[in-house]
Nucleic acid binder design. Structure first.
Lengths: 333, 333
DNA sequence: ACCGATTGCGCAAACGTTTGCTGTTAGTAA
DNA sequence: TTACTAACAGCAAACGTTTGCGCAATCGGT
């Protein structure tokens, strides 16, 4: 069953395709009666416009590209939910591209966006990305790009991020309030190559400094993944002087730490006081209290897509860094 | 900077676009030297094929549509990871469509797939879907469709599912082994409209019957969401005769139950023995043991996409129901 | 030297839609 | 009547790529 096209409609009515097109798009230069006749027939035959043709003709695709470095169960779902909502509300489709934390894949994905003619791009960079040259071609071609979460700060680009320094500082200040005279305050972070990691380490360090303490290198661990974070924690815990206050910079890291905590049957918060940066779900799943600063993936996704659609609508917005709202959550009792 | 096209290359070399096209596609009917010259120039000018034109010409889009009813942090990420992998390996793109558990949205998404000319579709249905008529048009048009997870069994279609009856039965059998003389065995399930729920209820019931017990209606609860499951559990727990053995049919439900368990500080497994169907992550995050039957979203996604790509490759496969492998995980001692 | 096959390339149409231009008709104003 | 305008619809080109067909030129074999 070949699809009904504008040409088919035109043939049946013995008129020109151009007239059919104009009628269906409600152009003023078709008589009302003919318009009506065309629309009725279109409806009857179940005419559906061919987007591929429209895209070719218009050079636009009504699609936005979403490039993410990894699919995590924590951050990713809430981000994509927000983005999908915004895209759907505006009649845009979502092209999902996954870089698998690999720069080559990211470059490939940028090219796919170019080929596919997306109208805009949302990007979270891989840990390997040292520049955004591979997106410049698209930028020159006039495709708006918004970088979110994992960005490069030393670039002139539209960025939406969590205020990492502030949230880490806030979290650690709260941690120090909860543990009056901590013997050892540690932090477990993500990949040290990421700017989001560096910012949070800085926040951690500054908060300690404000309390007159020093953040020794031995107290700062970097875990490349949840499993790695678990190992880092096990190493810490095997040391003579165990930490009694621990900051974890994300849900991903927290999940690794929790696995170790569970296996070793560590009593929280008796033996160890935790504080995290979290989307908020994970702390609710465990039977002890984990205070956290909420870093909402949903808000991040919303903010980034709103910005992108404003850019697509040609709003004159200068490249800048946007920070999302956050807040401390003490948790249950 | 307008993009370089085949026509541009042809003009520069004073040859015909068709020759350029053939050269770039390595057709035999272009001389080796001319081929070389064309390729060199294409490389130099950074020629990138225009997919929109290719799609229009070929009627194919090298894109597969993924329609899912909801974006959950548990099931969704592993499923999409598997699908994305398979799609990427074959050079296909992924169009993400979210039905938000709404039938109208699902119908809309089916239409988007038609307009966009996707080469195949992966669908998980909403709880409202009572038939798959809205996909028939696509099916007639020759677009392969694979239904996964949330499917309608009374339809002739390609389906990939978890063997719900078996896994529920297995899980409950294990539960009855763990609790020697249970006072009250309950099950908390998802939306009763879903076939996956009905199957699992049946498995639950049958396993009890095999043990000479009866599954009273009062012991079977349905939660529409994690929050609802939490309420259902709280209701159960408020009753005079509390359950001492509980089966939960998914991570989603489990997460709701865990929140209640944590708030009420219920001792697991002392006061209550849990057993779940789970992707495997959630049970590792809590400090007590939750045995589970692993129902891997990753495997499901892999199986479904493999089937879809076989169909796209025109393999003659009859519509049938495929069940993925599962297995019991006792968890830590 | 002649015929047949092969090689190498151009021509033009096609995919479905949109739009600037042209042309016809009818209506209005002078 | 003439001239001008507005309303309506057709023509054809365009977006970039692919491909069946045809036509030369070249090649191999007798």
């Amino acid at each position: 069953m070949p699809r009904i096209t504008i040409k088919d409609l035109a043939k049946r009515l013995n008129i020109n395709p151009s007239t059919v097109s104009r009628a269906l798009r409600n152009r003023p230069d078709v008589s009302a009666e003919l318009k009506e006749k065309i629309k009725v027939l279109a409806e009857k035959l179940g005419y559906k416009p061919n987007y591929m043709a429209i895209n070719l003709r218009s050079g636009k695709s009504h699609t936005i590209g979403l490039i993410i470095p990894e699919i995590s169960m924590f951050f990713f779902p809430s981000v994509i939910k927000a983005i999908e909502e915004e895209a759907h509300n505006r009649g845009y489709n979502l092209l999902m591209l996954h870089s698998n934390d690999n720069l080559d894949r990211e470059i490939e994905n940028a090219e796919i966006c170019a080929h596919a003619g997306v109208d805009g791009i949302l990007v979270s960079l891989t840990r390997q990305s040292k520049d955004i040259e591979h997106f410049q071609e698209l930028a020159y071609a006039g495709v708006p790009i918004v970088y979110f979460d994992k960005v490069l700060h030393n670039t002139e680009s539209h960025k939406v991020v969590i205020p990492g320094l502030e949230v880490a500082e806030l979290a650690v200040r709260q941690l120090l309030q909860l543990v009056k005279a901590p013997k050892r305050v540690c932090g477990i972070f993500g990949d040290s190559r990421l700017s989001i990691t560096q910012e949070r380490v800085l926040g951690f360090t500054q908060a300690l400094a404000q309390a007159g303490m020093e953040a020794e290198p031995a107290n700062i661990c970097y875990g490349l993944s949840a499993d790695d974070a678990e190992k880092q924690f096990l190493t810490l815990w095997a040391q003579k002087k165990k930490p009694d206050a621990l900051f974890v910079m994300s849900d991903e890291i927290l999940s690794g730490v929790l696995q170790a905590v569970n296996r070793l049957e560590i009593k929280i918060p008796k033996q160890l006081q935790l504080v995290a940066l979290s989307d908020g779900m994970l702390p609710q799943l465990v039977p002890f209290n984990i205070p956290y600063v909420e870093t909402s993936g949903y808000t991040l996704g919303k903010t980034a897509s709103l910005l992108l659609f404003n850019l697509i609508a040609s709003m004159p917005i200068l490249p800048d860094t946007h920070y999302i709202e956050t807040g401390f959550v003490a948790g249950r009792g």
